[in-house]
């Protein structure tokens, strides 16, 4: 079992009322917002399970919009996030999916995100309880990503040597890799390599990694 910090017990510091439905929702959206790396202009949130049933009473909707705006779980602006979104030109809407598919975690949200450059990103997040979250899909590909470390998410063609190239660049920039996992839909298709590190990862290293023509895109997500 992973380390349980005293601040996992006395914490998170959060806008109420629910660690799973409010704080967790804000964390999922914050993480997704960091991934796209530019100002977000439009998001469609699709809510499942308990999120779909009780989102209004738990402020899940305000927390999701707040997270997209970059607010941490204890930022009181979450309460007023709808108005702040309007002021910042962020459009959003909510769709409830009442599917009773048992494979979907009860506190799940899909986010279709569009950035100001037109860049698009689809992310599925699950709120696991106590404010802990996991992103479980990126653009439809199943992944596991918590945002607890500094991370690189590399979208690449599933060719030999791509991962080795990533690790060799990172090692030359003295980045100590904590975890590295490759997620892919099918052999030879698109793959997502998620590299997690204790240290911040330099943008310059990202530029070097990007030179590999097999790499389509890289998202840098600092903790």
């Amino acid at each position: 079992m992973a380390f349980i910090s005293v601040f996992d017990v006395i914490g998170p510091n959060m806008v109420g009322p629910s660690s799973s439905h409010t704080a967790g929702a804000a964390s999922i959206a914050l993480l997704a917002g960091k991934m796209i790396g530019e100002r977000i202009t439009r998001v469609t949130f699709t809510l499942y399970g308990s999120f779909a049933k009780t989102y209004k009473g738990h402020g899940t909707d305000k927390a999701l919009v707040g997270g997209i705006l970059g607010f941490e779980t204890d930022d009181v602006r979450i309460r007023d996030s709808f108005n702040i979104a309007k002021e910042n030109g962020l459009e959003f809407d909510f769709v409830c999916n009442n599917s009773d598919d048992e494979d979907i975690h009860p506190n799940t949200v899909d986010m279709e995100i569009v950035g100001e450059s037109g860049r698009q990103l689809t992310v599925r997040g699950e709120s696991l309880g106590g404010g802990k979250v996991m992103l479980t899909r990126i653009n439809g590909v199943k992944v596991q990503f918590t945002g607890e470390y500094h991370a690189l998410i590399v979208i690449q063609r599933d060719n030999p040597g791509v991962v080795a190239g990533i690790t060799s660049v990172l090692s030359s920039w003295d980045v100590n890799i904590a975890y590295l996992r490759v997620f892919r839909e099918e052999k030879g298709g698109l793959a997502y390599t998620i590299v997690e590190s204790d240290e911040e990862i330099s943008e310059k290293a990202v530029e070097v990694i990007k030179k590999n023509p097999a790499i389509q895109d890289i998202m840098l997500v600092q903790r």
Binding site: N13, S18, V76, G130
Partner: peptide, 21 residues
């Protein structure tokens, strides 16, 4: 009360039980 009004609290260990400690 603070928690239910979307005020800032510390979950201890949860938001629902945050008043006890």
């Amino acid at each position: 009360e603070m928690n239910a009004s979307m005020g800032v609290i510390v979950a201890a260990p949860t938001a629902g039980s945050s008043g006890v400690l």
